[in-house]
Write a protein that binds this DNA or RNA. Structure first.
Lengths: 231, 231
DNA sequence: CACGTTCTTATAACGTGATATAAATTTGTC
DNA sequence: GACAAATTTATATCACGTTATAAGAACGTG
């Protein structure tokens, strides 16, 4: 980490990540080939493989390069802990809502790239401590049952998030459906782990989210119905 | 459906599906190329594309060709409805447990195949009516709240199922982890939608499943630790 | 400065999913 | 039986992810 060699390598790494990000923004996932990526980064085709190992690894690196979740969250320290969890979920969703084309292209490419062998851990555990604190706060304030394991609960919340995201990535639901579906799933799971006091709060939110969740074909009514057809 | 032409076409279709199934069984997802598939099915390379459209479509057809869920479920009509739902989930998991190598290879190939444009609906809604009845029974018996939309709840249960499966397919968890994780997720969501009476039942199951769910690195202790290293 | 190591580069190649083309074959109909 | 429509077939081709190879450049060490 001090060699001039390693800094040059790190510089090449970040140049590749930036090139991938730009390429997705400009051409979508269709134009994101390793040859195009190498050309845009100003390196040889072999270099991304040397530095990352595979196309998928490059894209995962792009994903991990996106930071700032903690800073955005800095506000709303008030309110009850359960509400705070729902807000945090809303915030996480907002990343996708702010740049849907980019994230969909990125995830589409990641899914398309072969799975490889690396026990990828796409969904990082760096954020885990953040979420764990939120859950533990809720336990401390008597809103969640003390005998439920918050780590297991958190993983379950994560499952909901991933599934809704994946559902959107494979283009079966719309971007505006994400928020209520994630909210519903979170509120439902939290109510499942809640004390009577916490259950009351979550039941209200549950009903709100339920009302925003389209049931089957009830949706699709107000859609633009454009930009969907491909040549 | 009456032409001799169409029957021959249907026969070719099922020959391709069978060939894909056998090829996965024999060689795993590695040996499953369209050229190998065509050769094994005794057709030209172009034929699977004519009949299915893409590799992914062939594999989805393989998945849909697997039936018998209803028949297996025929037994246990007794018990309370919530318990019946958990049993049904257990049964669904058992399909994967009975032939893990096959299903992992199949899903790996499906995920690897490019997403295409077809709004794939991989997760079929044919089984929906079956599950809806289970949920509606639980409402009728006063175990689930009457003001929750069972269709939305069912979709949430599905999300849990998919996520755990996907987690296993990408090889981050083991086959024996699937059952408790799905059970936990179902019990948690059902408790989130339950009446006080239903909540008592689900809380018990929740604790049981929670005890079977490994928390992070607490797991891996009793694992064979073999066949994992790849060249 | 010169050596050896390490990495990039350029280039070719492999197997892949997918498409295009024209010939050959099957089928329904008269 | 002969014709016309539909499709399979054989084959060639494309872009892709990935790997291998040899040559070259950059760097740390003596």
């Amino acid at each position: 980490m001090e060699n001039r060699r390693d800094t040059a390598k790190a510089e090449r790494r970040s140049r590749i990540i930036k090139a991938a990000r730009d390429l997705i923004r400009e051409t979508g996932d269709a134009g994101l080939s390793m040859r195009a990526l190498a050309a845009k980064a100003g390196v040889s085709l072999a270099t991304p493989y040397n530095l990352f190992g595979s196309k998928r690894a490059v894209l995962v690196a792009v994903l991990e390069d996106i930071k700032g979740f903690g800073t955005r969250f800095a506000s709303f320290k008030s309110q009850d802990p359960l509400e705070r969890i729902l807000r945090a979920a809303r915030l996480a969703v907002s990343y996708y809502e702010d740049d849907p084309a980019f994230y969909r292209a990125l995830w589409t490419s990641i899914l398309a790239a072969s799975a490889s062998e690396e026990r990828s851990a796409i969904f990082n555990q760096k954020r885990d401590s953040f979420w764990m604190k939120l859950l533990d706060d809720a336990v401390a304030e008597g809103l969640l049952l003390p005998d439920i394991d918050t780590a297991v609960l958190l993983r379950n919340l994560d499952y909901t998030f991933r599934s809704v995201m994946l559902h959107w990535v494979i283009a079966e639901i719309e971007i505006e459906d994400i928020q209520p579906r994630v909210g519903y799933g979170y509120a439902l799971a939290l109510r499942g782990a809640a004390t009577p006091k916490g259950q009351q709060l979550m039941l209200k939110r549950l009903k709100t989210f339920q009302g925003q969740c389209p049931t089957h074909s009830a949706t699709r009514a107000h859609r633009p119905a454009a930009a969907e057809t491909t040549a």
